[in-house]
């Protein structure tokens, strides 16, 4: 369930963004708090720094440079995570109070466990039968909401076969905490057979 153990490219990129920003934030925090305390320790140390340097250098230039760098990284990065018209495998997820129903292109549906092929992009088309929910599998990608009256699409990519835990992230009533689900990624070659087995077991 951890975003810090990514198993797909989107989650991996976001985890990297986090670690970089954590280190950067630590440096900035240490700088500001260090300056604050230093002002009491050594009253003459930086007294000669002109006011304009503080305001323009520290207040304007410093954050602006850092923020431009961050945005220049994050905005294209976010765009690269979006679903594209590249014929990716597409499944459907319908949220309801309180559970998940997953539908497949060849027909059939499963409850609570979504079966996808590993090693290729999968677009999940997300809708809701009642209130707002959110589809979130932290190890694979970020989350997206299930909103009444619209279909939102989230791109998943599981690098390896495995079972990935997911959870509804948007508060949806008293059953919210129990609205977890799982994504089972199968070897791409074995996927159709595996899905057929699952559907058969479910009596479909």
């Amino acid at each position: 369930m951890s975003t810090l153990e990514p198993a797909g490219p989107a989650a991996r990129e976001i985890a990297l963004v986090w670690w970089v920003m954590l280190i950067g934030s630590g440096v900035v925090l240490a700088l500001v708090c260090g300056l604050f305390l230093y002002a009491f320790k050594n009253r003459t140390g930086l007294a000669g720094v002109p006011e304009r340097v503080w305001l323009i250098g520290g207040g304007l230039a410093f954050p602006i440079v850092v923020l431009i760098a961050l945005l220049a990284w994050a905005l294209p990065s976010g765009q690269s995570m979006l679903p594209r018209d590249d014929g990716a495998f597409r499944v459907e997820a319908e949220a309801f109070q309180w559970g998940w129903r997953f539908g497949y292109p060849e027909g059939g549906e499963t409850l609570t466990v979504l079966h996808i092929p590993a090693g290729e992009p999968v677009d999940v088309a997300i809708t809701t039968a009642d209130v707002i929910h959110a589809f979130w599998v932290p190890q694979l990608a970020g989350k997206i909401d299930a909103i009444p009256g619209q279909t939102n699409v989230l791109r998943l990519f599981a690098e390896e076969p495995g079972l990935y835990r997911g959870q509804c992230a948007e508060f949806c009533g008293i059953g919210h905490a129990g609205m977890d689900f799982a994504v089972q990624a199968h070897e791409a070659d074995d996927y159709e057979a595996a899905l057929a087995r699952v559907l058969e077991e479910a009596g479909q």
């Binding site: 989650a11 963004v17 920003m21 976010g78 990608a141 970020g142 989350k143």
Partner: peptide, 8 residues
């Protein structure tokens, strides 16, 4: 930052 927000 949009991608990080999608996770957090």
């Amino acid at each position: 930052l949009v991608p990080f927000n999608w996770q957090a």
